[in-house]
Amino acid sequence: MTSVTSLFSPVEADLCLLTENLKNLVGARHPILYAAAEHLFGAGGKRVRPAVVLLISRATMLDSDITPRHRRLAEITEMIHTASLVHDDVVDEAEVRRNVPTVNSLFNNRIAVLAGDFLFGQSAWYLANLDNLEVVKLLSQVIKDMAEGEIQQGLNRFDTTTTMEVYLEKTYNKTASLIANSSKSAGLLSGVSVDVAEQLYDYGRHLGLAFQIVDDILDFTASTEVLGKPAGSDLISGNLTVPVLYAMEEKPYLEVLIEREFAQPDDIEQALALVRESEGIERSRKLAAYHAQLAVENLTVLKPSECATALRDLCDYVLSRLY
């Protein structure tokens, strides 16, 4: 299996610079925020989102170097993503992420909420300074989408009437919107045509959906060590993902367990077993592969290059996490 590090080798130096810049941008004047930034940006994340921005920037600027605005867009993308994770961890009362303590468990909920707010505010300020109204609109929409996705998820907890359409809309808002809109923004900063920008958006949208569906599958198939958080945590918290929605079609008793919110001692073990015994995981794999393929098809607008190849290989990498 290709490692994500080798996949991102065309932008490895850019990503190292990004990590250092982020620590300085976020924590320069606040000791607690610096500690939070050191913790967040040094937590072994894969940097998928800024890497996509940098790869698209380089793939659309083959005749010259990328600009400081491309680099800043990558930093803004990672700031927005990290801010959303900090807030998610507070909402979910999570104690670990990527096998390290969350900001809320290291400090407290109040500091975590304020750190997330600060990151969103900081990203908005740097966004405005890009002086590109179209990009400002796209990334502002992302912040709105993320909040909407989190609200949708909260309102739909333990709701067995949740449809696949509702799930995909929530997943777009929470995960795919950032990848889609930042991909398009990177192209716009390179001066690509409207049509190319739209295809870069579609690449990011389908990649984001495939990425999240794979994460939803891993919640049932991977160990706690691999996940960096407790296995089955989505289902336990009432978040009904693709494998569960498919499994409910086959296993009606799963609905009963979910609707009573796993009130009996063995309910959660039974529910996890029902999902694993069903075709839900296999059908979810096919759905992830479908979106990964659509993502690849949108890359035909890019001229052949090392970075274009890496963007294509990223779609394979996302699916390979399942094996």
Rank of each mutant, 00 (worst) to 15 (best):
1 M>F: 10
2 T>Y: 12
2 T>W: 11
6 S>C: 06
8 F>I: 00
17 L>G: 11
22 L>Y: 11
23 K>P: 00
27 G>K: 04
27 G>H: 06
31 P>S: 12
32 I>Q: 13
38 E>R: 14
42 G>R: 05
42 G>A: 06
43 A>E: 03
51 A>E: 11
52 V>Q: 02
55 L>S: 08
55 L>H: 05
58 R>K: 15
60 T>A: 01
62 L>I: 11
69 R>L: 14
71 R>N: 10
76 I>T: 08
85 L>Q: 00
86 V>Y: 03
88 D>R: 01
88 D>P: 01
89 D>K: 05
93 E>F: 04
95 E>T: 14
96 V>T: 15
97 R>Q: 04
103 V>A: 08
103 V>N: 02
106 L>M: 14
108 N>M: 05
109 N>G: 09
112 A>G: 03
115 A>W: 02
116 G>L: 02
117 D>Y: 01
129 N>H: 12
131 D>M: 09
133 L>I: 14
134 E>Y: 12
142 V>K: 05
146 M>S: 01
148 E>S: 13
149 G>T: 03
154 G>K: 07
162 T>A: 12
162 T>L: 15
163 T>G: 06
163 T>N: 01
164 M>G: 04
167 Y>M: 11
177 S>R: 09
178 L>Y: 01
179 I>F: 02
182 S>C: 02
182 S>A: 09
185 S>N: 07
188 L>Y: 04
189 L>S: 01
190 S>F: 02
190 S>I: 01
193 S>C: 07
200 L>D: 01
209 L>P: 04
210 A>S: 13
215 D>E: 11
216 D>P: 05
219 D>M: 06
220 F>E: 08
226 V>R: 14
226 V>E: 15
232 G>Q: 06
236 I>H: 15
237 S>H: 09
239 N>K: 12
240 L>T: 06
241 T>F: 05
244 V>R: 09
252 P>W: 04
254 L>M: 03
262 F>D: 09
264 Q>E: 15
264 Q>L: 15
266 D>L: 11
271 A>F: 02
282 E>L: 11
283 R>E: 13
285 R>K: 15
285 R>D: 08
293 Q>G: 11
293 Q>N: 13
294 L>H: 13
304 P>D: 09
315 C>M: 05
316 D>R: 13
316 D>T: 12
318 V>E: 00
320 S>K: 12
321 R>I: 01
322 L>S: 03
323 Y>H: 15
